[in-house]
Amino acid sequence: MDKTLENVFKCFDKDFYTVMKNIKANINEVRIRSDKPVVLYIKNKPYFILKNSDIIPLEKLGTTNNYVIVTFASLKNAFAGLCEYSIYKHQNDINNGFITVRGGHRIGICGTAVNNTNNIKSVIDITSMNIRIARQYIGCSEIFLKSINIKKGVLICGVPSTGKTTLLRDLSRTLSENYYEKVSVIDERSEISSTFNGKSIFDMGLCDVYCNYPKSKAIIQAIRTMSPNLIVCDELTGDDIESVIYTINYGVKLIATVHCDNLNNALKNPSILSLLKTRAFGEIVFLESKSFCKIDKIYNLEDIEFD
């Protein structure tokens, strides 16, 4: 288990940390609900953990009482620890339902919201956490680069846990180091590079990384000051339209990701359709939903008419 992941589990109580440390499998996600058995996802399949660090498939629920359970109090303390006892530092992310910890691991949270005239002011009493484990797979973008034309701009689509961010990470590294492109990475949530104190945990090659910047502002700043050929960003939405149009005006190509599973749904989604209509992307790539970093389909957007 890598050090950043160990530090995540160290925030929980000692028993839980010991159990997690002894698990040898390659975990994608850990779902923790207060006072309920902890569920692991390995290759996108769910398993329970037992107190002796054995894992059993979900179908075997009820065959034993030896599950690992995290109490509400332990979850609350762990959350404070994961925020490095500095809630103010993570408040914006908390209000958006997640925090990103060192190592680029994104932790989705849910609990009780404190509202202020339709806005979430804060979240208290955390009852569930979903720890999505980030990894770097050096070379996972090689097949991708052979299949697409980066020079036209690419929109990468996939459902959660199909490897979009992992692919972006390796694409940034490969394009900057091996293809000598000037790449600016807009890392709004510090998931792509996992930068802390000016150092990124993942190998980002020769990229310029904008860490924690709001996406739209960072895209415009990058174009004005770092003269990139390519801008890489994660989870683009319809709110970023203006900055996407800005990239077209300056001849900078975009590689971005969105949540979507197929072309029909993409064309029906107003947010994605508005991005496609800008013609900033020459190709749209869909990743296989049951695999990791594997291409399912590629469409040439120049052949598609938008209503």
């Binding site: 925020c83 006892y85 500095s86 103010y88 804060s122």
Partner: peptide, 10 residues
């Protein structure tokens, strides 16, 4: 109480 609330609270 440091670190237990948002910036305004702190």
């Amino acid at each position: 109480k440091l670190g237990t609330s948002d910036t305004d609270g702190q």
